[in-house]
Design a protein around this nucleic acid. Structure first.
Length: 321
DNA sequence: CGGGTTTGACCCGCGC
DNA sequence: GCGCGGGTCAAACCCG
């Protein structure tokens, strides 16, 4: 299974302050039960769904080449409204800005919003462009870090904390905190500017695992929840959640990366790892009784390639024999 | 009682 | 320098 998608690499020198954002429709938990939420999204760039939508499954199975992929993504060279605005923004959109101000023009993240991918790769070091800050010295995080915060001001100056890769996706959900198979501990909540909905901060409870995630609701479309994962789990899903496809998939995603730990992964891969229940859906075979684009709750919609290009202009899709 | 949540304080980078 | 906003900490609190 780990090879299920190995034939398709998504190699992209991510732009530092970007995240991977995936919109989809339909989400099921490990038991194939419909969850109270679904990843939503469809392109608003005008391509015909009936002919252009392609399931991630297909992509992952590598049964397509670059062109088909481009087609699937609804290749639109200049369709960059969403993200271009983000990039141009003096204040690069924080994930939290999705569905909001940035795109301004009322382009609420409704089922008609375009799927967007964006990500930030750690290697690049911190985003210099964005006003993000990485918790510096607070130490705690990395194992080893211990300095207790307050006095811990002793941060190593030059040492900039490396930014973990981030990945965000929007889901239509009634609940803010989606069940993704991992155990999270909430460590903070903050009000989001220009939004009546707060942003919650969670940390993986597994020791040594520094994965974090932020959850917030789009203020333009309250039914949309934006989840941002940061970092990658260095462990498997908690035992209680094992024994299911999601766990298996997750495991496969955790196998050593032959290309190095810094290899950019296909957003779906990341998603699969970050949110197994979703990821498993992305790689599940086309066994649904419903056509890919007709399943009432299981509709995959591919991101607009044009947006992708804006985000990761040099991304490369590599297919192996 | 252990583990998770709440919440105000604190820290820090950035823009003005 | 100051205020703003995002991110984190940790004491207090809650709950099974």
């Amino acid at each position: 299974m780990s090879d299920e998608h190995s034939d398709l690499y998504y190699h992209a020198p991510f732009h530092e302050d970007h995240y991977d954002v995936i919109n989809e429709a339909g989400s099921y938990n490990h038991n194939n039960q419909k969850l109270p939420y679904s990843i939503v999204g469809s392109s608003n760039h005008g391509f015909d769904p009936s002919s252009s939508y392609m399931s991630f499954t297909e992509c992952l199975h590598g049964s397509m080449d670059y062109n088909s992929l481009a087609k699937a993504f609804g290749m639109s060279p200049s369709s960059s409204e969403v993200f271009s605005s983000i990039e141009g923004n003096p204040k690069p959109v924080e994930i939290g800005d999705f569905g909001g101000g940035a795109n301004s023009t009322e382009n609420p993240v409704t089922p008609n919003s375009s799927v967007s991918f964006s990500s930030s790769e750690a290697g690049g070091e911190e985003d210099s462009a964005k006003p993000k800050k990485e918790s510096p010295p607070k130490g705690t995080e990395q194992d080893g870090g211990e300095c207790s915060k307050k006095e811990g001001k002793t941060k190593k100056k030059g040492e900039k904390k490396q930014r973990e890769p981030r990945f965000a996706f929007m889901t239509k959900s009634e609940v803010d905190h989606l069940e993704d198979g991992y155990r999270w501990r909430k460590y903070g909540q903050k009000a989001v500017k220009n939004s009546p909905y707060p942003r919650s901060y969670y940390r993986c409870t597994t020791q040594k695992c520094t994965v974090k995630k932020r959850v917030e609701r789009s203020f333009q479309d309250p039914s949309i929840v934006i989840t941002t994962y940061e970092g990658q789990h260095n462990h498997q899903i908690p035992a209680t959640l094992r024994g299911n496809a999601a766990a298996m998939f997750s495991h496969s995603m955790l196998t050593p990366n032959p290309l190095g730990s810094t290899r950019a992964t296909f957003p779906q891969d990341f998603l699969a790892q970050m949110a197994p229940h979703i990821g498993s859906q992305l790689v599940a075979g086309p066994g649904s009784i419903y056509p890919q684009n007709q399943h009432p709750h299981h509709q995959y919609q591919v991101p607009d390639y044009g947006l992708l290009q804006d985000i990761v202009p040099s991304m490369v899709f590599k297919q192996e024999p």
